[in-house]
């Protein structure tokens, strides 16, 4: 369980996060949605300490992250798998080396065990026969999938995914969504997914946080989000005419 309390953050006087509090539940897929530029990426970067916040606290199963020193933070970070919005693959390493890398750093597995684990993860994101390519030789969606494989390689306790299926075709999208849901439930991970994709929200969203202009606007589950009368959410969920028509049919 990750609890955030009253997080505020501004860049050069411009307020980006406003007093956000939320509880991300263990073994559930917690989804953050909100318009572009609403502060979703800044929120999860702040939660792992990549941005300094102005105020607030983050508790990882009770451990107050901001109060820890450098080494204490490192220990929690070892339990985190993170998918960056841009992938952030190491471009001097091949696909396989990227996935093997965290294993080399933190486990004592033999070379062949590491390779097996990497291949297992790559297989789960539906990426075969790309082991020896470099990131510059991959498509956008392939990069995303390698990054997911790398994030889950070390069996994290906390998984952060910033738009895991942007840039993927609908079929691969569903594979990734299902993978995230499966491993979350199988290993009891606290998973946080940022997405714009309403399909994903409806498919895997156990617990949803809606951010509007940097503030928590709404929280609930996937059934509630379809029925809420909140105007900003309706604008977000039923952005297309197709969806609006669907709603009138309910």
């Amino acid at each position: 369980m990750i609890q955030i309390n009253n997080i505020s953050k501004s860049f050069a006087g411009r307020s980006v996060l406003k007093d956000v509090s939320f509880t991300f539940q263990t073994g559930k897929v917690n989804i953050i949605i909100g318009g572009s530029g609403s502060g979703k990426t800044v929120l999860i970067r702040s939660m792992v300490g990549l941005n300094e916040v102005d105020s607030g606290e983050v508790l990882y199963d009770g451990r107050n992250f901001y109060e820890l020193n450098f080494n204490g933070k490192k220990e929690i970070r070892k339990e985190i798998g993170m998918l960056f919005q841009g992938g952030a693959l190491f471009d001097s390493k091949t696909v396989e080396e990227n996935v093997v890398f965290p294993l080399s750093m933190f486990t004592d597995l033999s070379e062949s065990e590491k390779r097996d684990r990497a291949n297992f993860c790559l297989q789960r994101v539906n990426l075969l026969n790309a082991n020896h390519l470099f990131p510059s030789e991959l498509s956008g969606g392939m990069k995303k999938r390698v990054a997911i494989a790398r994030a889950i390689a070390v069996e994290p306790k906390y998984l952060f995914c910033d738009e895991p299926n942007s840039g993927l075709d609908p079929k691969t999208s569903i594979v990734i969504d299902n993978l995230i849901k499966e491993i979350t439930e199988e290993y009891g991970i606290t998973t946080i997914v940022i997405t714009h994709d309403m399909n994903s929200v409806i498919e895997i969203g156990d617990h949803i946080l809606f951010i509007y202009e940097g503030a928590k606007w709404w929280e609930g589950n996937k059934k509630e989000i379809l029925k809420t009368d909140n105007k900003e959410i309706q604008d977000f969920v039923y952005a297309t005419k197709f969806m609006k028509d669907l709603r009138t049919k309910f």
């Binding site: 490192k74 929690i76 970070r77 985190i80 952030a88 933190f106 070390v154």
Partner: peptide
């Protein structure tokens, strides 16, 4: 390209 952030997040 956030590769340094990725290292930090791995606890490196």
């Amino acid at each position: 390209t956030e590769q340094i952030d990725a290292l930090e997040i791995m606890g490196i």
